[in-house]
Design a protein around this nucleic acid. Structure first.
Length: 418
DNA sequence: TCTGGGGTCCTGCTTCTT
DNA sequence: TCTGAAGAAGCAGGACCC
């Protein structure tokens, strides 16, 4: 498995056993901060914070020099500077990060087509088919780390395991600039020693609830009856945590991702009480959402409003549209209608608009009047029900946001209701 | 101490439909 | 036509992730 390096991280030896592994989780180290150093080498070695430089900004990324002072992502920049007064703060340059992200992802795709980007700076890779070309998963991981460093000047950490969940934990444990391989036979021992908060989906609240029942480590979960977990975390959360603690994670690396919502929100530099100003903001945000919908060839079935008061109380309101739309004026009308129905109790610090229940602009709805198209869809539907079993497969689950019924997904995501 | 912006998923409650 | 039950759908809020 791995051994401690004296700095709190765990890394694998060169001859580490990678039996039974096939998933890599690659995570760029302090990505935004590292890109800033790449572009301005004079920043190397200094405590660096990437984040909003004025007002209510938070830390998007911090160099490891800044982290030594307790600076963490999502912390307000003001607090971060109190912890580390000599830190250099730079505003984020998202276009630059996106460009380097594309470069890194291209390296991944050069190794395997089975790449699932999780965010701008991390991805899962399934390298089971790359063995003949590149070697075992451990060898692929070493080669990948070397290539990323040589071709971009950036450093990444890689977790190698039999499942996505364990690979993800492994990459976290070996940061920065590390490689940790958890072979299938070692997985149970690796998981058992971890704190419950290391499990995916266990955040501060869930961890506190579990610890309140004396469940502090994954080993404690293994010793707990499933109904106890379900009582603490709810049926879905309890089941998920039980499975993850037992090393069960059947999720495959998915190369195609279907967006479920598109939204924009804005926190104001100063809280706003004037309804007219807030309505103008809603118009502006709605136009941005609509533009993104049109770019993606999508329409919104539901419009949701988010509003946060000065004291951080957050409200949400949503309305289903009689007809889906990608028109900013229409989305804005609905958002403002939802806003007007709220009696403002305090000045507002944040307002946002989100388009939900997305569907293809030229897809599902355009087919309504076309019997021939529907017959093709229904033929595909019958086939899919045979392949996946049960009646939960629907026209919508087959079509999704796409029109091409011949391009049936091999593993359609089924909607919760229908 | 002060808490961004982009998302996903889950739960509990209410309303609608059959 | 009315009514109650059950399931589906809609909605609000919260936790979580990067």
């Amino acid at each position: 498995m791995g051994r401690g390096d004296g700095k709190g991280r765990v890394v694998s030896a060169d001859d580490a056993d990678d039996t039974g592994t096939r998933i890599l989780h690659v995570d760029m180290d302090a990505f935004y901060a590292s890109v800033e150093v790449l572009d301005d080498p004079s920043l190397a070695g200094t405590p660096l914070i990437v984040g909003g430089i004025e007002g209510r900004g938070v830390v998007s990324s911090a160099s490891y020099e800044a982290r030594r002072y307790g600076v963490r992502s999502a912390m307000s920049v003001q607090v971060a500077l109190r912890l580390c007064p000599n830190a250099v703060v730079v505003p984020p340059h998202f276009d630059r990060y996106a460009a380097l992200s594309r470069q890194v992802m291209a390296i991944f795709h050069d190794i395997t087509p089975l790449v699932e980007p999780l965010s701008i700076d991390e991805a899962f890779l399934d390298v089971s088919g790359a063995r003949r070309l590149w070697g075992s998963p451990g060898q692929v991981a070493r080669m990948l780390r070397a290539r990323v460093r040589a071709e971009t000047g950036l450093v990444c950490s890689v977790g190698v395991a039999a499942t996505k969940h364990v690979a993800k934990i492994a990459s976290t444990r070996c940061k920065p600039d590390g490689l940790l391989i958890v072979s299938e036979p070692d997985t149970a021992a690796f998981l058992a020693a971890l704190p419950v908060a290391a499990l995916w989906g266990v955040g501060p609240k869930a961890a506190e609830a579990l610890e309140g029942r004396g469940i502090r480590r994954v080993a404690d979960i293994l010793a707990s009856p499933r109904h106890v977990l379900e009582r603490v975390l709810g049926p879905a959360g309890g089941e998920r945590v039980w499975q993850l603690a037992h090393g069960i994670d059947p999720r495959e690396v998915e190369t195609e991702r279907i967006e479920k919502s598109i939204g924009h929100e804005e926190t104001f530099r100063h809280d706003i009480a004037d309804a007219g100003t807030l309505r103008s903001e809603l118009r502006r945000l709605s136009d941005r959402v609509a533009a993104r919908l049109r770019d993606g060839g999508m329409q919104a079935g539901t419009v949701a409003l988010k509003l946060r008061y000065a004291d951080f109380t957050t409200l949400s309101r949503a309305a289903t549209l009689p007809e889906p739309t990608d028109v900013g004026q229409r989305i804005g009308d609905v958002a403002i209608g939802l806003f007007e129905a709220i009696e403002l109790a305090q000045p507002v610090r944040l307002i946002g608009v989100r388009a939900e229940k997305l569907r293809s602009a030229g897809g599902l709805l355009a087919l309504w009047d076309d019997d021939a198209e529907w017959r093709r869809v229904d033929a595909a539907l019958d086939g899919a029900r045979e392949r996946f079993g049960g009646g939960a497969v629907t026209r919508a689950s087959i079509l999704g946001p796409r029109r091409d019924v011949n391009a049936l997904p091999t593993n359609p995501r089924l909607p919760r209701h229908e």
